[in-house]
Amino acid sequence: MKTASGPWMATRASERALGRIGLYAALALAMFFAFFPIYWMLVTSLRPNAEVFAFPPTLLPQTLTLEHYANFIKNPQLLVYLGNSVLVATTTALGSLIISVYAAYSFSKFRYTGRRALMFLVLSAQMFPQALLLISLYLMFSELKMLDTYAVLVLSFTTFTLPLCIWMLKGYFDHIPTDLIEAAKIDGAGQMQIIHRILVPIVRPALVATGIFAFMRGWNDFIYALTLVGKSKQTLPPGLVLTYIGEFQSQWADMMAASLLVSLPLVIAFILFQRQIVSGLTAGAVKG
């Protein structure tokens, strides 16, 4: 039976098609903003120096070269910075995870006086401009004769990673039924056994997400790593600037090649753990 729904259906179909086009256009725009800087880094790192500053610039390189990647590998000081970054970021991630697991468990599963105040106090550390905290931390570490040590970097980075780590893990712990903990207690498990043998395996995805967040903080920091330690203990971000940017130099192609290379560990970590990261980050987002 023919009805008046024909034109109506056609309108709906065209609206859906338009909606899809709009969606794809928005996605394409978002992709452009996300990936164009990476594309530009890549092509800059593959161009010879003369072409990097060619005016007007071209989207595609006219000549390809790997000399900037070779320059990174041949520079022993950059490998020192790389080693420092691995050491400091890994220690920061591990330290942050260890402390935040216990803190988050406490905030999530115990009720005591001052708990909420303490939770917000921890969070408030995130609310100060880090540049201002740097001054007070520098003066404090200077008094303690701790400047120019790896410990000073790990302590500083952990200061900034802990609040978010604790809140991320608390969100995950909140979803674990208290009955499970009660059952473990009835079976004779102590608090440490409950945390280590029951809860930690359950919250593994959140631990991965949190650990990577803390690792990134240590890996990417510039100003603390520049200020608190000397050249021998500096990490990659200040090391790269120190090596490539100055009053009379701007080796952008070398800088882009080095930046891409040092981003690889994080990219690989994301690819390997993407499932855990997504589930870890979304845990606690919806009240179940």
Partner: peptide
């Protein structure tokens, strides 16, 4: 002892 910093910093 060397203590280098980038010019801008």
């Amino acid at each position: 002892k060397e203590q280098p910093y980038p010019f801008g910093e």
